[in-house]
Design a protein around this nucleic acid. Sequence first.
DNA 1: AACTTAATGTTGCAATTGCAACATTAATGA
DNA 2: TCATTAATGTTGCAATTGCAACATTAAGTT
Lengths: 209, 209
Amino acid sequence: MNYLFENINARNQGKILKLLESEYLTLPKNVNLFTIISSDSFLGLVRTGKLQIVKNDYSGNRTIVEDLNENAVFGSIITNLNSTEYEVIAKEETKIILIDYNRLYQNDYSKYEYYNEFMKNLLKILTDKIEERNQRIEILTKKTIRNKLLEYFKMLAKKMGTRTLYLPFSFTELADYLAVDRCAMSRELKYMKEEGFIKISSRRITLMY
Amino acid sequence: MNYLFENINARNQGKILKLLESEYLTLPKNVNLFTIISSDSFLGLVRTGKLQIVKNDYSGNRTIVEDLNENAVFGSIITNLNSTEYEVIAKEETKIILIDYNRLYQNDYSKYEYYNEFMKNLLKILTDKIEERNQRIEILTKKTIRNKLLEYFKMLAKKMGTRTLYLPFSFTELADYLAVDRCAMSRELKYMKEEGFIKISSRRITLMY
DNA sequence: AACTTAATGTTGCAATTGCAACATTAATGA
DNA sequence: TCATTAATGTTGCAATTGCAACATTAAGTT
């Protein structure tokens, strides 16, 4: 995964963080970031731990918008957090850095040679995010649960380079990701097993085609 | 819409374009960019005209991936074009600039004060693209055609600030965008009209709720 | 270990949808 | 203008799906 401070030494990292008025924060497990801060105009970086961006819509549904691990970048620049519907939850104790992103645009830092490197890194990260979204759209565009599953498996298998893949999340979360009813998905997976298309043992799935 | 050369004067624009080994191209109407060039590692900018990125999948389906108007930015940085499945078609005579995007990452241009501005602009554009994708995902995640339509209308109405909105594309394309069967969508729109939810006259839609 | 909560599996049934086939209207171009 | 192509509208029907309700198993907590 691309890292925001790739090719920037510790000293210059420090300078950038100071320049951008960033702050360090430690989120205890299960705590929502917005119970600690109120602004959403930041660019966040996960230093250690895991976060989850969760949306609670008006009808009480809870959806995972994004899973964030070490080095992941988040914030309104990527996902609109500008609404009380969103929570940023620490899945375990998590250390983050928050950068005031208005400052990214306000000033001209071109005199600092390392700042350009930083911008290039950020660019790569955003490109990855777009790719991620495109992939999900590609999947959501399929018309049947089976085709969504197959597209998703294909993508994972390609990423891993094998016909055996490990789901990065639970079946409940997978159903969410594919935007289908969990029970209907469970049924479809059963059919696919019965037809010999796939083998499943817990989160390991083997493609037989 | 954000523009790649916002706040950069013509002279510096020229310098950037030279620095990045960009080239000018004019695409005649209905011509596919990839019949003219073969590389896909460019960052494209539409100067005048209209482009459409179209995907032809293995089963012969043709989908519009993206509509690009004046000042729009495109390329593999945003949509993966690395496959013969994709076409970049000019809907009318279109003038574009192609920038070799490997050069964006390879060199350090921080000594050029305007380059930083350019990177900031690019950042904003990518942020917009992510937002666009997030919006579509939000819509595709709805489980019924009606809810997809309502979410889409809501979004458009919000953008326009009125309860009357103009579809930016045809119903056939809308069905594509929502990833539903056109006929089924047409039926659902009929029901919504009958129930007094909306009024439709050609591409103008009025929300009655 | 005992308890609680979350995840998974299963199924009947009604609602929604895709598909196919066709009619009608609008847009395009020679 | 006339012809051709594209877009839209309509509907029956079968397939797919969401929903609800419940059983079972796994995971997490004290």
